[in-house]
Amino acid sequence: MVFDRYAPERLWKLMRPDAVHVWLDEDVRRRLSWYYGVMVNELPAKYMIAKYVEAEDNPYKLGYEELVDVKRRARRLFEKLFRDARAGKLTLEVFVKEFRDRPKYSLLDIDVALAKMLANPCRLCERRCMIDRSKRIGACRLDSRVYVHSWFHHLGEEAPLVPSGTIFYGGCNFSCVYCQNYDISQTMPRHGEVVDAKRLAWIQRMLRLHGARNINHVGGEPTPNLPTIVESLLYLDVNVPQIWNSNMYMTVEVMDILVDIIDLWLPDFKYGNNDCAMKLSAVPRYFDVVTRNLKIAVESGDMIIRHLVLPSHVECCSLRVLRWIAENLPLDRVLVNIMDQYRPEHLVAKYPRRWPELVRPVYREEVERVYAYASRLGIVYEPVS
């Protein structure tokens, strides 16, 4: 297990001084105001609020439609408390004083019950493979267990996130031919440590207590592991922002769970059309699903969008991704990280003739063109690169 729990704070500040200086930028502070408030323990994380919103009935004994109905009523209080917290009326200090006793069953319990139902048969992601993963491997290459391949303080993430308490889960519902984490996502997804909800909560607690600014659920892809992730929050007893570092290919039903617990969205917006997504990641209806989920997510938390510039895919993907962001998301609340670190990996490196446009690094001219287009659209990307 990769985790240096005794790494001094001064080490990461020396290695990533931008992680300190970024918070002097008033625009970043404003755009990431909710995340920042939770990060510095001024505001309660969303999962903490959900844990103290009482459920009318025992959610573990209800059917799906009954659960949805009970959740609808419980969420009214949750949304009020979230609004109050966003407005600065419900600080963490006030929250701790007013919500001393946890209810027997909460909105978070409802979400746990819903996640477990959606996982069997599995319809957590939009592949909707409908497989009982306790008996067969799903489209995500996973059975019903959760495999954690590593967890540590990540110093290579965007400046506002460093040091990030990153948990790498095995498995993925994509088959990207250039995947840089192909060992844990595609070739050996079930070779990590098998964890249950209590163990996962302990990992998150240790990361936070030893200096992590957040808990960063990544992979692979975290979506297939949703039931255990949500359940772990029932046992987590420290205030910490929850980050969903994802390809955003989950179902609307899963989004309805995530909006109760995610403080900062870190979506990977890969392609500007469905054809490139099918060709390079074997994903149907990619653009339709991801853009739908981005619209839902941006209304319920802060957001940093990642986009990796691919060689020869500037016109068809990068420019279209940026144009969609500018036309559909509130640019005064979103940051974008335009990434230039593509390198030929996995199947592209093994079979270069199949994807000849991807066998080279991205040209600097291509990246500069994407930067210039983002600037023309009014997209802020420099502070988090």
Rank of each mutant, 00 (worst) to 15 (best):
S281H: 01
D288I: 11
G301C: 07
K270M: 05
D332Y: 11
E315R: 11
I296C: 01
K350S: 14
Y363A: 13
D332K: 10
S300K: 13
V309Q: 03
L266R: 00
E315K: 12
H307R: 09
I305A: 06
M278Q: 11
P284D: 05
K270D: 02
D275F: 12
L308H: 01
A326L: 01
I325T: 11
R306M: 01
D332I: 06
N274A: 04
D332T: 10
K270V: 05
W355Y: 15
E299P: 07
R323S: 14
W324T: 09
D340C: 03
E327L: 04
Q341C: 05
W355V: 00
K295M: 13
V298C: 10
R285S: 08
D288Q: 15
Y342E: 06
R333V: 10
V359D: 05
V334Y: 10
D268V: 02
R323E: 15
Y342I: 02
L308W: 04
L319T: 06
N293R: 01
D332A: 02
R333N: 12
N274H: 13
K270E: 07
P330W: 11
W324Q: 05
D275T: 14
V298E: 06
D263G: 08
V298M: 07
R364Y: 10
L266K: 09
P352H: 13
V283C: 09
A282T: 09
V309T: 10
L331E: 09
H307M: 05
H307I: 07
D263W: 08
G272T: 08
Y286G: 09
V321R: 04
P361K: 13
S318G: 05
V309N: 10
L322E: 03
M339V: 04
D302E: 08
